[in-house]
Simulated assay, not measured.
Amino acid sequence: MTPVTASTEPTESLGADGLLDLPALERYLSAELDGGLAGPLTARLIAGGRSNPTYEVSDGTTHWILRRPPYGEVLQSAHDMSREARVMSALAGSAVPVPDVVLECDDPSVLGAGFYLMVKLEGRTYRTHDDTATLTVDERRQLTERMVETLVELHSNDPAQVGLADWGRAEGYLERQVARWARQWHRIKTSERPEVDELAERLTRSMPPLRFPGIVHGDFKIDNLMVAVDDPSRILGVLDWEMSTLGDTLADLGVLISFWDEIGQLHNPITAGATAHEGFPTGAEVIALYADRRGISVDDLEWYVAFADFKIAVILEQIHHRHLQGTTVGDWFDDIGGMVGPLLTRARDRADRAEL
């Protein structure tokens, strides 16, 4: 999901693969960008993205990042590029660092779907156990503290003050989320897993009341942050806003903890041990740090973490479904299907421990 590593070498056109029509994009950008283009476009598909295809595009002088929806059938209202561009534009200049959006296009005749272009950040994303092994113990602690502070800053924003009063409806957010992902499972499932309906029923029955409404990122985790190469504690940009809306902000903390791997414990199959190193605090310590920075109590967070495991499992099944249909882009999808079962099992285990 995040622009860091190329999975293909730059090429004059990806159109031969039916992916990115560079001649069409070049015509469009030449007309829409102030000053046009400095030269012919090249592009490369960015590795790491398991959902929205993401490309680095360059005219030989300037480098941008282009984001578009997945190829093939997707959940209605998901992967809306105009929403992703809007929330980043709204937060520009706030305490939440985001890339600058250059332009957005809602005309599907250009690339087959809406897309937007943003400034390429010159930084690094840490997404694997090996990546974070390069950090010192102090750097891991400092990065964690800055991550939590950034999440608190996001949740402290008044949506109306940044032009997002109509961004969504916080009331009923959790109910809609559980129902939405349960429905989506039955639309795209590739195997029978009765635990999905069981979990949806338990989550619905034990749902906590809305206490802290605000802007929700929806996928806040370590590999959706771009940090400075020379200072891992300096966050250059929060990325991947495709699931952002107004809702229950504790859902973001639940997602962060779902992805927060610890030494000696089962790792989330996506992050696969990224934070399982000395220096990274435990998940419980991250929760306590968030609560302290925000000045709130989060005693009922286990529900949110179980829900995060459930939601992420459905999203991975959705990507696996598209992969089987041949509509994913890139070469990092073969293991997606195997990630679903462990997440559902962990969600059920969390629900058991919390007596949900």
Rank of each mutant, 00 (worst) to 15 (best):
L236V: 04
P159S: 06
A200E: 08
Q161M: 14
A182P: 00
D230M: 09
I215K: 08
P208F: 03
L154S: 00
V196L: 11
A228V: 09
A179D: 15
P159M: 02
F220M: 06
V152C: 13
D230R: 09
S156I: 13
R234V: 11
S156V: 15
R176T: 01
V229K: 15
Q161R: 15
K189E: 11
D231Y: 11
P209G: 08
A170P: 06
W185P: 00
D231P: 03
P159V: 04
W181K: 04
R193D: 04
V216P: 00
V227W: 02
P159K: 06
R234C: 07
P159D: 01
N224W: 03
D158R: 13
S156K: 12
L154R: 00
R234Y: 12
G168M: 05
E195C: 11
P209V: 14
R176G: 12
E195T: 14
P208N: 02
H217T: 05
T204A: 14
A228W: 01
E192G: 09
P209A: 15
I188L: 11
E195V: 14
R205Q: 13
A170H: 06
A179V: 11
L174Q: 14
D231I: 05
E171D: 12
K221H: 15
V238C: 07
V162E: 04
R211Y: 09
H186L: 13
Q161L: 15
S233K: 06
H217C: 14
W185V: 05
L239I: 15
R234N: 10
L174E: 05
T204Q: 14
L203H: 05
V238Q: 05
N224F: 00
E153H: 14
N224L: 01
I235P: 00
A200N: 13
R202F: 02
R211T: 08
M226P: 00
W185A: 03
V196M: 05
L210S: 12
R180A: 15
T204Y: 10
E195R: 13
D230V: 07
P159T: 08
D158I: 05
A228F: 03
G168D: 04
